[in-house]
Amino acid sequence: MKGDQKRRSRPNVRSELLFLLAINGVLIGNVKPAVIFALVLFSGLLLCLFCRISTAAKYVLTYCLMFSAEHLLMLLPGISLFHFIIVISSVLRKFIPCFMVGCLILETTTPGNFLASMQRLHMPKVFSLPFAVVLRFFPTVKEDWHSIRSAMKLRGIGLSFGNVIAHPLRTVEYIIVPLLSSSIKIGDELSAAAIARGLGMERDRTSVYDVRFCIWDHLLMLAAAVFFVLITFV
């Protein structure tokens, strides 16, 4: 985030989104395992460079585990439940690169940078503003959820398997009601802050973020093109 103000050391959210769309659209079809593995490694590299190494390692390990588990299950005699698990796992496995790039976008994009980038794309504010709120608000709600959970545990109505099965609707009520009432209050404050920052203006805002394309963006777009061709034609 510091790099956004000084020299740019990471790609802009627009090229990350383009990369995601390029691989996302074609993964539905039949893809060679080697290509997917290359994609996983490349996304892992992106996560290492611009996010956290531990996150990258987690995803790459998950992929390898699923891949080997599938092939072990295939060796076993054909029980239809195994076949079902193999198919589900092979479909989910394909989407792991998307999860990785998505994680990169959601964890490293700041709301201000996102709004500035979307303004450059001439994206209408009715779409970009709610999305920026999601980026800004997500960690807050996650934090709320953890405190609600510990408060519930303190009163002996923790989220144990037995409790959820015995009183499903009551458990939901205990989680949702505090989550909603605290969020609504924060929401009012957020919109006051947004108006103070001039988000209600009709004209374009200026921004301190440098959202011009840099060398990383060109590299990422090249990679997107390469993978698009690889997935579609190999």
Partner: peptide, 15 residues
């Protein structure tokens, strides 16, 4: 739609 409405959408989408 005003800014406040867009904020409401964002907040409820997050939850």
């Amino acid at each position: 739609l005003e800014v406040k409405d867009l904020m409401t959408i964002g907040i409820f989408a997050t939850i």
